[in-house]
Design a binder for these strands. Sequence first.
DNA 1: CTAGGAGTTCGAGTCGGCTCTAGCTCAAGT
DNA 2: ACTTGAGCTAGAGCCGACTCGAACTCCTAG
Lengths: 150, 150
Amino acid sequence: MLGDMSGDLTIGQVAGRTGLSVHTLRFYEREGILADPVRREPGGRRVYGEHHVEWLNLCVLLRASGMPLPAIREYTELVRRGGHTAAERLALLRAHRDRVRERMARLDECMDLIEFKIRVYEDHLEQGPPEGEHLCGAPAEEPAAHPAAS
Amino acid sequence: MLGDMSGDLTIGQVAGRTGLSVHTLRFYEREGILADPVRREPGGRRVYGEHHVEWLNLCVLLRASGMPLPAIREYTELVRRGGHTAAERLALLRAHRDRVRERMARLDECMDLIEFKIRVYEDHLEQGPPEGEHLCGAPAEEPAAHPAAS
DNA sequence: CTAGGAGTTCGAGTCGGCTCTAGCTCAAGT
DNA sequence: ACTTGAGCTAGAGCCGACTCGAACTCCTAG
C-alpha cells in the first residue's frame, strides 16, 4: 500500500472519489482546471489532497450543469489569482446560473410536449387499437399543433 | 420568387421556420431523420411541405431535450413503419421522458449548490471585503462541504 | 528475481453533431 | 448576355470532451 501519510491520495483514489477517470484527471490538469498544483512524489507520481477532491467535485458539478471547460478554466484562474477576484467569480457564477435556468425552462417546455405525446399514445393504445383508417400513420404522429409548440 | 403553389417550401424556407440551417436539414435527411421523403422538383431541388416543418420542429424539440440523433432516427423509423409500431414509440418516448426527468433533477441539485455559492459571494462582497487573513483564497473557494455535496 | 499493478508522458483516435468547401446547376432579374 | 442568389452533391473539417495506445518507470508481493 501507498504510505497513508496524512490526507494524501493517488490519482486512482481521486478517480474513485470524483467519478472521473484517471485519464480525465490528467486531462483536466493539462487544461488548467486545478486551482492549485498537484505535488509529485519523487518518481513523478501525482499526490493529491482532500482539497483537490473537493475542487474536482465542484468541477464535476459545474460540468454536469453544462458549464464548458473553458469557463471552468476561467473560474479556476480567478480562484488562483486570489480573493480580490471575488466579484468576477460572482459574475461568472451568476451568468452560469442564468444559463442553467434558461435550459431548465426550455426542458420544462419540452417535457410538456413529450408528456402530451405520451398521453396521446397511451390513450390510443389502451382504449382502442381498432385498426381504423384514421390511424394509418399514428395517433398523433406530428401533433406539434399543440399549445406551446411554436 | 418560387412558385407559391399550395404549401410547398424550399429548403431555405424550412430553415427559416425550424431554426435549423440548410446544411443541417440536408444532414438530417441523410441521417434518416425525415419520416417521409422529400420530393424534388425537376432540377433536383428539395420540395418540403408543412408536415415536414412540423416533424422537424418536433425533432428540434427532442434534440433540445437531449435526445441523441440515433434515438430520433429510431423513432422516425417507427413512424415510417406505420401505426402498428405505436407501442414501441410509446416505450421510446417514455424512456426519453425518464431520462429528461433525471437530468432535470440533477440540474436542480446543481442549482442548489450554485445558488449557495452565489449567496456566499454576495454576502462576502456586499458587507465586508475587509482584506482580513481569513479570506486569502476566497470566501468559499471550495465550500463543497455543503448539504447535498456528496 | 520477477511478475503485476499502478503510475508516467506524449500524441493520436473517437464520437456526436454539426459546419463548411469546392465545383456545379438552375431560374430570375437588369 | 450576364450576374446574382439559392440549391445541389460529395466529402472534408471542426469543436468539445474525452479516451486510448505505446512505451516506459516504479514499487511491492510472492
